[in-house]
């Protein structure tokens, strides 16, 4: 086993070409993910946060090659994921899994949940016959479902139960890394708490690493050790969770934190960020955030900001921290 991080992503990019007209002339490209770098250690949770449309889901799927990235590199446990052929990728899938946001569309409506959870074990030749049944029962039990439910179909379960099924399916092959793509966002708050506790318990038990994609900062605080903030396909700030909440540097991170609902009704009203995320088809020049930035400066619309490390493990991409810039090449986020 290598000593580096479990997952190392460098300059990952995915551009969706937009075609127009009868002959499909290329009319531009949406830079959904545009040079994203991060790493995840074994047993650690990295939260990837941002508004809808910022590319966080695309980034998560590109890491698993569910969407083929256009550029960059992904190394999992020292293995170059993007260089794998179909067979190698299939073997790697045992170690890297995904849990989806929508507990309704993520389960096959015409399959029993026992088959759903056991299918991959069978196909990969990990277990069969009585052993398969036993493993499925154990996994279902572990996520808090009765093994008696295995012959039922997904529509017979509630949203929270369905999400447990989704987790069981991801867990079946004993992965080491799971992308949680808004895994708790569609659930109501009490179920959310149960699910976060379940995910944390599973993490402790199996030393799982999570890439936790979400827009909900309250959830981030409970589960993540580190946070990466994304805006328009780029990471604008990364920091350990407590550091990010206590000392946000990027104006966008600050705006996100302020927009986060507070349980205190007499707290001062937050400054709400104006406008929408600009179209990723025509991102603003310079710093992509400048049209909405409350602290915009004269050169923000011309010069893209570099990467500044403000304290160990805390990096930011903003002209306000320009005196802390270091050359981009030597950065590990």
């Amino acid at each position: 086993m290598s000593t580096g991080p479990l997952l190392e992503v460098r300059d990952l990019a995915k551009h969706f070409r937009v075609r127009r007209g009868l002959l499909g002339r290329a009319a531009g490209a949406i830079k959904a993910v545009d040079g994203v770098s991060f790493h995840v250690q074994a047993g650690e949770t990295l939260a990837l946060v941002g508004e809808s449309g910022c590319g966080k889901t695309t980034a998560g799927r590109a890491v698993l090659r569910l969407i083929e990235p256009d550029a960059g590199s992904v190394h999992f446990d020292g293995q170059d994921v993007l260089a794998l052929d179909a067979g190698g990728l299939r073997r790697l899938r045992r170690a890297m899994q995904i849990v989806f946001q929508d507990p309704y569309s993520s389960l096959n409506p015409r399959m029993t949940i026992g088959n759903m959870v056991g299918e991959a074990l069978k196909v990969h030749g990990i277990a069969s016959g009585a052993e398969l049944g036993e493993r499925v029962a154990r996994i279902l039990q572990r996520v808090g479902l009765s093994p008696d439910f295995r012959n039922r179909y997904a529509h017979e379960f509630s949203g929270g139960q369905r999400q447990r099924i989704g987790i069981a399916r991801a867990l079946a092959m004993a992965p080491r890394f799971i992308v949680c793509d808004e895994a708790v966002s569609a659930l109501d708050v009490s179920i959310q708490a149960q699910m976060i506790n379940l995910l944390k318990d599973l993490q402790d038990e199996y030393r799982l690493a999570y890439l936790f994609i979400t827009h909900d900062l309250n959830v981030v605080r409970h589960i993540a050790g580190r946070v990466a903030v994304m805006y328009l396909g780029k990471i604008v700030e990364t920091a350990p969770t407590d550091e990010l909440f206590d000392n946000p540097r990027h104006p966008y991170t600050r705006a996100l934190l302020e927009a986060n609902p507070q349980p205190d009704p007499v707290a001062p009203r937050p400054r709400v960020l104006q406008g929408d995320v600009p179209s990723p088809l025509t991102p603003p020049p310079g710093c992509a955030f400048h049209p909405r930035c409350p602290k915009v400066m004269a050169h923000c619309d011309r010069q893209p900001p570099g990467w500044a490390v403000v304290s160990p493990g805390h990096g930011v991409s903003c002209h306000l921290d320009e005196n802390a810039y270091i050359p981009a090449k030597s950065v590990t986020t």
């Binding site: 569910l66 299939r90 899938r93 890297m96 989806f100 196909v123």
Partner: peptide, 16 residues
């Protein structure tokens, strides 16, 4: 749909 993406993520072969 997510359940088909999930099937890909599980490394299931295309005919399946």
């Amino acid at each position: 749909q997510d359940f088909v993406v999930a099937a890909h993520a599980l490394g299931l072969p295309a005919p399946r």
